[in-house]
Design a protein around this nucleic acid. Structure first.
Length: 393
DNA sequence: TCTGGGGTCCTAGGACCC
DNA sequence: TCTGGGGTCCTAGGACCC
């Protein structure tokens, strides 16, 4: 049975800025940037884009070059709240939706639905009216035969665009208008490879005979753009199915001091394991990295002696391997800790000696610490390591 | 004093087994 | 004696995404 599914993609316009403006309407019409704490611009209002600010531009540079720009720091709770309400709106229209990221959703659109609204134009207009009326935030909408085409469609007339690609000729025109640099799934490594074959647009990509040396995802994105349904809309993932958790922080000034760097790693291990405990997940493999002031990464991976979310055990495992990430000459600007192989606590098999069991009991201590932090703030409790030095205990 | 932070999936190659 | 051909699991590293 051949169905004619359609896919909707909704993409928040300058989402973090738009969310901030719901609380600070007096800033509307001004150049506003949301900058990840003292770091780089992650979202820009159209006015800020117009004067030349781009994603990734360092905040210090923006301040210097464009003193008139308002720079806000981010508030993820607010964005998540608006995302949830967006999810509710979409759920009231469609049976199957997928929250792809904090500012993007997909929905599977049944053709009967389109009919019910009297055509795709009406459906999209109605949806847009409801979203913007309720949330006071604008989204660009794309409707097409596949996910990849819908995503391409929503990009075409950002911000605030509503683009339906139903007729074949519209689809072709849209592919021709999209540069090879802006294709979902084709990243910075692959773009130059494709350009070497003379490809310039998504249309060229769709009609290109990909050599087998390209990876599977590349073939899948290509077929999606050709109109073949490869990616379905998946129901929202349970956070407990998450496969990794990471915590990383940049610190200033960059340092070669082992104690300083270790303290940062300890803080990250605490934050990552706290997050794991919130989700009641445990890990048996940990990754640790440092980033030098030249932006060079050094990475190591360590198998843990058991499944755990205890920062003490995690730090004990990292400690002997830590010195080889450093050398005297290179300054370190940030560190990170990543927990892999996340497994639900309740599904971890107990080992022969019941060690695992003791670890889980030890969790109670950490839980108490988490509660205190929740009540009195992050600084209330810290492991000795993140306060002081290499010699813990 | 200069550039966040947090994720997923694929692949090639080695170990091991029959 | 002179080395086939699978399968599966794990790992490290790379590529992609927001």
């Amino acid at each position: 049975m051949k169905t004619n599914n359609l896919y909707l993609h909704a993409d928040g316009d300058a989402f973090f800025v738009a969310c901030e403006l719901t609380l600070r309407p007096e800033l509307r019409g001004k150049p506003v940037v949301v900058g990840a704490d003292r770091g780089i611009a992650v979202a820009m209002s159209p006015e800020a884009k117009k004067i030349g600010i781009t994603r990734g531009m360092p905040v210090f540079q923006i301040k210097k070059l464009y003193p008139e720009v308002v720079i806000l720091s981010h508030h993820f709770d607010l964005y998540e709240d608006i995302e949830k309400r967006m999810q509710q709106i979409l759920s009231s229209y469609f049976n199957k939706i997928e929250v792809y990221s904090i500012d993007e959703c997909f929905a599977l659109v049944d053709p009967s639905e389109v009919k019910y609204f009297g055509g795709e134009k009406n459906l999209l207009a109605e949806l847009k009216r409801e979203i913007e009326g309720t949330l006071n935030v604008t989204y660009s909408l794309g409707l097409a035969r596949t996910k990849a085409l819908a995503k391409l469609a929503s990009k075409l007339e950002k911000p605030g665009g509503v683009v339906a690609l139903l007729a074949k000729e519209d689809e072709i025109a849209a592919l021709k208008r999209t540069s090879i640099d802006n294709i979902w799934g084709v990243g910075r490594r692959t773009i130059p490879r494709l350009k070497r074959f003379g490809l310039k647009t998504a249309y060229d990509f769709v009609n290109f005979n990909l050599p087998p040396s390209f990876s599977r995802p590349m073939f899948e994105f290509q077929r999606e753009l050709q109109g073949e349904e490869i990616f379905g809309v998946s129901f929202n993932a349970d956070p407990r199915d998450q496969k990794s958790i990471q915590a990383t922080r940049t610190f200033r000034p960059a340092s070669t001091d082992q104690k300083v760097i270790w303290r940062e790693i300890a803080k990250n291990a605490e934050r990552a394991s706290e997050h794991a405990r919130e989700l009641r997940l445990v890990s048996n493999k940990v990754g640790v990295f440092v980033k030098t002031s030249e932006f060079k990464y050094k990475f190591d991976e360590i198998k843990l002696p058991m499944f755990t979310s205890d920062p003490g055990i995690i730090l004990d495992a990292i400690e002997p391997r830590f010195p080889r990430l450093l050398n005297k000459r290179e300054k370190i600007r940030s560190t990170g800790v990543i927990l892999y192989n996340l497994t639900r606590e309740e599904s971890v098999p107990l080992d022969l000696f019941g060690r695992q069991d003791k670890i889980l009991k030890k969790r109670i201590v950490e839980d108490a610490a988490d509660k205190i932090r929740a009540k009195y703030g992050q600084g209330a409790i810290r492991r000795a390591a993140s306060l002081a030095n290499l010699k813990r205990k």
